[in-house]
Each structure stands twice: as C-alpha cells, then as structure tokens.
Simulated scan of single mutants.
Amino acid sequence: MTIPPQQRRLYGTLLKQHPDERDLLLTKADLLRAVRDWLHRTGYTEAATPILCASRESAPIPQFSTSHPVTGESFHLKHSAEEHLRRLVVSVDRVYDLGKAIRAERADDSHAIEFTMLQTAARDVTLADGVTLVTELVQYTIQTAFGTLRTPGGTDFSTIATRTVDDAIAEALHRTRAPAGAELVTAARSWLREHRLPAGESDWAVMEDFVKHAVEAAVTTPVVLHGFPYELRHNSRIDGRSGRAQRFSLIADGVEICDGGLKLRAADDYRPMVETNIALRTRLHDVPADEGPLDFLADIDCDPADVFTFGLGIERLVALCTGRTVFETLTFPFH
C-alpha cells in the first residue's frame, strides 16, 4: 500500500488510521527489546554515547557539523559510536550503545540520514567468536520478535552461512581465484565501468562500490562474508597468514545489515590510517584537516587489547524482516 508523503508527515494520525503501520511500530519495539535482552544476557553493559562530538571520527567521511548557539563551540554529529565504546572497553569488558546515528547519505529504500544503530565493543573476542555472537544475536532477536526465523518479509534466518570475500569476488568476476592488490582494484573498476556504475576516486571507494554492487547484491540467503581484501580493511587488523582483514559483513537479500571485525590494537596502529583518512576527507569532501581523535588514541593506549566490534542497523533489520523499506520503518520519518 502506497501512502502519500503528506499523510506520513502526520505520523500520529497515520498510526491511528492505518493499523498495519501501528503494528510495524510495535514490531520494531519488540525487536529492540529482544536486542537489549540478548545483550544483557551475554554480559554487555549499555552506555549511551554523545550525539554532539567535539572531535571528528577517524573515518574518511563528512559528518554533519553544528555550533553551540551561545558559546560558539563546534560539534560534529555522531556517525558511529564505535570510537567512544572503544574508549570504554579499556575498563568495561563488553559495552554497547543503542541509539541514533546521523550520516551524510542520500536517503533511499535502504539508507536514512538519521536512524537507530546498535554498536558494540568487546575485549578478548576473536573474529570467529565474534561472528558467532552476531549470528546468535540476530537469530535470537528475530525468533523473539516474530516467533519464527522465517520472517514475514520472506527471509529465512534458520541458517546463516559463512563465506570468504575472496570466493564471492572470484564468482562476481567469473574467475577461479580472486585477484589481489592493484590487480583487484583494476578489475573492480572495470567491472563497475562495464555495468555502467560510477566508481569513486580512491581505491577504497572503488572497492566499496564493487563489493556493494557485485558481491552483496548477489547474496540472497543470509551470509556472513569474512576475510576482506587489504583495500577494505578499514580499521580491522590484518591476519598475518592470509594477508586479509579480520573483518566481516552480514548480508541478506543483497543488503548489509551488520558489519564489524577485530580492530587495531593501539594508537600507533591507528595513526597511519587516521592520517590517510584525514587527507581523503580534505581531498574528496573539502573537510579541513584536523589533529584526529586524540582522546580516543590516548584512551586505547591505556590498555591495548584485542577488541571485536560490530554495528547493526535496526531499521534495516526491521525492513528486511517485514518486507518494508527503511523509510517506512522510521519513527517520525519526516521528523
């Protein structure tokens, strides 16, 4: 059923007049309760992180910025809670934030500017054990909220398979083995060009677009992709034996609903990436260079550890489970 935007703007009236929309709101609430229940049962502590951040995050992305109307202080709106949680996990073994994220993205059926994000951090958890945690969380949440793992939207979460990104890339390129390094980036750029899709300027942007359109779009049943190429390492540690990033992504019906991995340990590990990302922000988005997240770097050096983090988009999961769009699952979609 298509509901005109002017009706969706009157959100309370919409829920009153359309029982299905009210049921969707209640389903989302059930799912959120199930997420929190699983996290508490598994030893995670909830910790709210700030929306207004004094420092930019280290990712190569633009953030919404604002200033205090009285003091003139500058702030950046939270893109992710990960760096604040990494600071907390120095002292508390497992922490999570379940709140708003605000991103400078173009809104579409699977993206929103403001949405609900679960972000976690846990000490002394391997990538394999972390993937198990994510799988258990998703299955418990869906079973609790819907009473079944075969969701109303048609996705069956009874089995969540695992697959290496190399295998998925090789399949997308119709090769027996995935290329690596510069050869992989060249092949990815060519694939995007052949399919008349735009390719970013940086190797990172090219690989992001390639994985989204060539790899993720081909996924039908729930799959955890792991072992990412070096170009898509983000802030994940590199496995010394395979040369692959200890990062994972949970995909279902062509949509990424969860991403994370085993993170870099100490400030010296992060600094080269942070400097590269600051330069990318300046070149690609005209964001002035800064000193980087100094408090974050100081805190993680207090007690370096193996830390597994993951982020889960709540509206994306609700949309996937109900056969709706992300926009339709937003509470007050027009704010």
Rank of each mutant, 00 (worst) to 15 (best):
A145V: 08
F146V: 04
F146H: 03
F146S: 11
F146N: 13
T148I: 01
T148W: 01
T148L: 03
T148Q: 14
L149G: 04
R150E: 15
T151M: 01
T151H: 04
T151Q: 13
P152K: 11
G153Y: 03
G154S: 07
T155S: 13
F157E: 00
F157T: 07
S158C: 07
T159H: 14
T162G: 09
T162A: 11
T162I: 12
T162P: 03
R163W: 02
R163K: 10
R163Q: 08
T164V: 14
T164E: 09
V165N: 03
V165W: 05
V165E: 08
D166C: 03
D167C: 07
A168T: 00
I169L: 09
E171N: 07
E171S: 11
A172I: 01
A172E: 05
H174I: 10
R175S: 04
T176V: 05
T176A: 04
T176W: 04
T176G: 09
T176S: 13
R177V: 09
A178I: 10
A178F: 04
P179N: 05
A180D: 08
E183C: 02
E183W: 00
V185I: 10
V185W: 01
A187S: 07
A188L: 03
A188N: 02
S190C: 06
S190A: 13
W191P: 04
L192S: 04
L192N: 00
R193K: 10
R193I: 00
R193D: 06
E194A: 14
H195R: 15
R196H: 11
L197V: 07
A199R: 00
G200F: 02
S202H: 06
S202L: 12
D203F: 10
D203H: 02
W204V: 01
M207D: 01
M207Y: 06
D209G: 06
F210I: 08
F210C: 10
F210S: 06
V211H: 02
K212V: 13
H213N: 10
A214L: 04
A218K: 11
A218G: 08
A218S: 13
T221C: 07
T221V: 09
T221D: 14
T221G: 06
P222A: 12
P222F: 10
V223N: 03
V223H: 01
V224F: 13
L225W: 01
G227Y: 02
G227C: 14
G227I: 10
G227S: 13
F228L: 13
Y230Q: 07
Y230H: 09
Y230D: 09
E231L: 11
R233Q: 14
R233A: 15
N235R: 12
S236Y: 13
I238K: 01
I238R: 08
D239H: 09
D239Y: 03
R241A: 15
R241L: 15
R241P: 06
S242K: 09
S242A: 13
G243I: 14
G243D: 03
G243C: 04
Q246M: 15
Q246N: 12
Q246E: 15
Q246P: 08
R247W: 08
R247I: 14
R247D: 12
F248I: 11
S249H: 11
L250H: 01
L250V: 09
L250A: 00
I251V: 15
D253V: 11
G254C: 10
G254H: 12
V255S: 06
E256F: 11
E256Y: 05
I257G: 00
I257H: 09
C258E: 07
C258T: 08
